[in-house]
Every structure is written in structure tokens, then in C-alpha cells.
């Protein structure tokens, strides 16, 4: 049962990554690309969490946490850069 659920989660997360990558490439505005990158990181965390269930290991959670931290930091830094032209003033 959990295997089928994990396979469904892998498929949906991969389709989500492809859709987000489409917006990342096509997005007309730089902020669309920033938002797509943020969502890409969220989807990658979900995929990694489902992989942790599939392989029955708790080794992947540090990776998820690092992804979450760097995703948030990069989003804020990109927004500050677009808004002010500088990250740290």
C-alpha cells in the first residue's frame, strides 16, 4: 500500500517539477522565475521526503532541511536584489 502511494507521489512530484521548470524557463518576468524557483525547491523537498519513505531511511531529512533553508534564503535574496539592486546594503 505504501509502495503504491510512494509511486503516485513520485509521479505527481515529477510532473510538478516539470510544470515548475516550464514556468522557470518561460516566465516573462524575473519575479515569475523567482517564484518558480521557490516552488521548485518545495517540490524537491516533497520528492525527497517521499524517497525517504520509499527507502525506509531517515538519512534524507538533513538534505530536505538544507533544501528548505537555501530555498528560502535564495528567494529572499533574489527579491531584495530585484527590489533594491543590492542584497545587503
Amino acid at each position: 500500500m505504501i509502495g503504491v502511494a510512494c509511486i503516485i507521489a513520485f509521479s505527481l512530484a515529477t510532473i510538478s517539477l516539470v510544470l515548475t521548470g516550464y514556468r522557470l524557463v518561460v516566465g516573462p518576468d524575473p519575479l515569475d522565475r523567482v517564484l518558480a524557483l521557490d516552488t521548485l525547491v518545495i517540490n524537491a523537498i516533497g520528492l525527497i521526503a517521499a524517497m525517504g519513505v520509499w527507502f525506509a531511511t531517515s538519512m534524507y531529512f538533513e538534505m530536505s532541511l538544507l533544501f528548505a533553508v537555501f530555498g528560502f534564503l535564495s528567494t529572499v535574496a533574489f527579491c531584495k536584489y530585484i527590489l533594491r539592486g543590492n542584497v545587503i546594503e
Binding site: 510544470l19 516552488t39 517540490n43 516533497g46
Partner: peptide, 10 residues
């Protein structure tokens, strides 16, 4: 839900 969010983004 993750799929719905990414679909809305796309």
C-alpha cells in the same frame, strides 16, 4: 496538493 499548486503556477 503539490501537483495542484504547480499546475496553478504553470
Amino acid at each position: 496538493f503539490m501537483f495542484v499548486g504547480s499546475l496553478a503556477l504553470a
